[in-house]
Simulated assay, not measured.
Amino acid sequence: MAKILVTGAAGFIGFHLAKVLLERGDDVVGLDNLNDYYDVSLKQARLAQLEGLSRFRFIKCDLADREGIARLFREEKFDRVVNLAAQAGVRYSLKNPHAYVDSNLVGFVNILEGCRHNDVKHLVYASSSSVYGANTSMPFSIHHNVDHPVSLYAASKKANELMAHTYAHLYRLPVTGLRFFTVYGPWGRPDMALFLFSKAILEGRPIDVFNYGKMQRDFTYIDDIVEGVVRTLDHTAFSNPDWSGDHPDPGTSSAPYRLYNIGNNNPVELLALIQTLEKALGKTAEKNLLPMQPGDVPATYADVDDLTRDVGFKPSTSIEDGVAKFVQWYRDYFQI
């Protein structure tokens, strides 16, 4: 039983994580700024479910609020922190780059400082598969170099990894970064493909299918993501005694610093996802085939060997089961 701060608690992953932590007996303080990047009512509906559970408290605050975050850490004295709050979205980073600097860079420094000065035992934070950028060697491994991001969102997440390593090195703060691969499932984000496709198909509108449907993604079901987060949270980051500056391994360190991919280890073509969704909805999609958008990558595929070895877990939910559960939730939530 621990006192845990979950930032982004009104978000997709944060909501599911907080619920699991509460169910197992932890005390959870959920933080969110409830911004309007997408429908705030969905965030409020998630929060309403959490606020009905004991041992949960919600605090509305922006990560970029330096004094507010410092005060929160001083007053609460968290055992562990999971930082999921961030400005999300690859495409939106082309339109509003400053939002990513404020939340993902300034905000993350505030979290690191809070952990450093208040004896937090372990910080787990969300990175992203987008850090692999221009890499084409598959599957993506944490031991690969990731110095060629292709969006500002990806660059901000790579920066988080570098910032986290610095604090692990200087202050021996145990930190673990998790590179999530295309998360989907009930209570998901409305800007993600599965949500957008379901809404359009049920409304009889065409769907935009980029890269002519040839895009491949390592779609990862939300329950698998949360299981991976909880296991890594309980498995405090540790140093690699064999790490050498002569041949530096990007995925480990002489500091208490770790990185893990959390992906399904089974990339699915976008057209195959759409076919699975059509079957679950019982309705055929009208497809508007388009070229790839700036900032996107043609494929993602996670190597999860390190995650499996260190915490004994590997995502396993099939795309058929996951999509069916999402569609059931979608119909229930929107009463369709």
Rank of each mutant, 00 (worst) to 15 (best):
G251M: 09
K157R: 08
S93L: 07
E67A: 06
G107T: 05
L47Q: 03
L196R: 08
G322H: 11
F73T: 04
Y37Q: 14
V229R: 00
G228I: 10
L5I: 13
D310S: 04
N266C: 15
P267Y: 11
H98N: 07
K279S: 12
L178I: 10
S137L: 05
V230W: 02
V327H: 08
L196D: 07
D223K: 09
C115K: 05
D27F: 14
L42H: 13
K279V: 13
R91W: 07
I13K: 06
T136Y: 00
K157V: 07
D310L: 14
K95N: 07
T236P: 09
S318M: 04
G263V: 11
T220P: 03
P315E: 09
F181L: 01
P139Q: 09
A193P: 01
K77V: 02
I111H: 01
F313M: 11
L105N: 03
L21W: 12
V150A: 11
N266T: 12
A45D: 15
E23M: 10
D218Y: 00
G204L: 08
Q293S: 14
M192L: 11
P186Y: 01
A302G: 02
H16P: 00
F313A: 12
D65N: 13
I4M: 12
S254N: 15
N211C: 01
R205E: 13
F197Y: 10
R24S: 15
Y92D: 14
K214L: 06
V28M: 09
R55T: 07
L290K: 14
L50Y: 12
S137A: 11
K158E: 05
G213C: 05
V106N: 08
Y257D: 03
L5S: 12
L94D: 11
L84G: 02
P139M: 04
I142S: 05
E286N: 10
L281R: 02
L22P: 12
V29W: 07
Q275P: 00
I336F: 13
Y92H: 10
D224I: 04
V183D: 01
L202H: 00
E76P: 07
N288G: 01
F180E: 01
G8I: 15
T232M: 03
D36M: 05
I201T: 00
I142Y: 00
R71P: 01
P315C: 03
F15K: 07
F108G: 05
D310Y: 14
D310A: 09
S151Q: 06
I111T: 12
N211F: 09
A2V: 14
I225G: 00
E76C: 02
A18V: 08
S127Q: 04
H98M: 13
C115N: 11
E67N: 11
I319G: 05
H16G: 00
G107W: 02
P298A: 03
L31V: 15
T166I: 04
I4L: 13
S93F: 05
V226H: 03
D32N: 12
S151T: 03
L273V: 11
A159T: 09
D32G: 06
L289M: 14
N288F: 07
I262M: 13
A18Y: 02
N240D: 15
K121A: 15
N288W: 10
W243Q: 01
A285C: 14
